[in-house]
Design a protein around this nucleic acid. Structure first.
Lengths: 123, 123
DNA sequence: CTAGGTGCAAAATGTTTGCACACGA
DNA sequence: TCGTGTGCAAACATTTTGCACCTAG
């Protein structure tokens, strides 16, 4: 994987926010400093970074895929109103072992997403 | 929600399998008995059934959305090789309460998907 | 009769890809 | 220079929608 300023700047954006942006949001953010950036490049790099475990993919069941610059194990909360994605501190590292005990599968990890309404949207 | 034989037959298919089919797989299955059924109707009814909590949507991060006729709380395992979706017995009902304790959010439920390789695909 | 459901085809959405050119090592 | 990355536009897969017709209640 060569250096590329586009990928560098994507990573900087992802590392500096807790907002779990979508591909398009990242694209829009990048266009502020690089008007030539293409959406194809954004997608190519997001996939590359995901495949290498450098960032995380979050599928919310709602709209398009969100990305998370923080790869420390944690889980997410998706507000069914405003669709924002929040980080949760919940430690769920024991879950993988439970599944290993119950099955003969090789477990590499899990994705845990909670649904409901955030403070802004409830009532 | 009026009665419709298309929706009835979809539900019968979903209730009688543990294979977590995609919209297109359900469509293909329905065409065996009703060659006129349209993919649009399949999608419309899947959304309707999901919105009413009659079936479950499973997003696997891999391909298109899968559906589950069983709404009893349980979680899933997705094989990263063959992409099949398996049911897991794991009881995770305590997780929602943990999140309620930690946050002020209104928690309605969660989706827990494990990744790894199934018995057929490992080694 | 009326509200809701359907088939069909077209459109919208989100994502991937082929190609010629540009850049990093 | 060589292999990798990029911009662009076209292609793609999946899902949604508008419309005229059909069906349940």
């Amino acid at each position: 994987m060569n250096y590329s300023k586009q990928r560098e700047s994507m990573l900087r954006i992802l590392r500096s926010t807790k907002s779990h942006p979508t591909a398009n949001e990242i694209y829009m953010e990048m266009r502020k400093t690089d008007s030539k950036i293409s959406l194809g490049t954004v997608y190519r790099n997001l996939n590359l970074l995901c495949d290498n475990g450098i960032i995380l993919r979050i599928d919310t069941n709602h709209d398009s895929v969100h990305y998370d610059g923080c790869v420390e194990p944690h889980c997410h909360f998706v507000c069914s109103d405003c669709k924002r994605v929040f980080d949760l501190e919940l430690d769920t590292s024991d879950l993988d072992d439970k599944v290993r005990e119950e099955t003969d599968f090789t477990v590499s990890g899990h994705s845990l997403v909670f649904y409901g309404k955030c403070n802004n949207c409830k009532d």
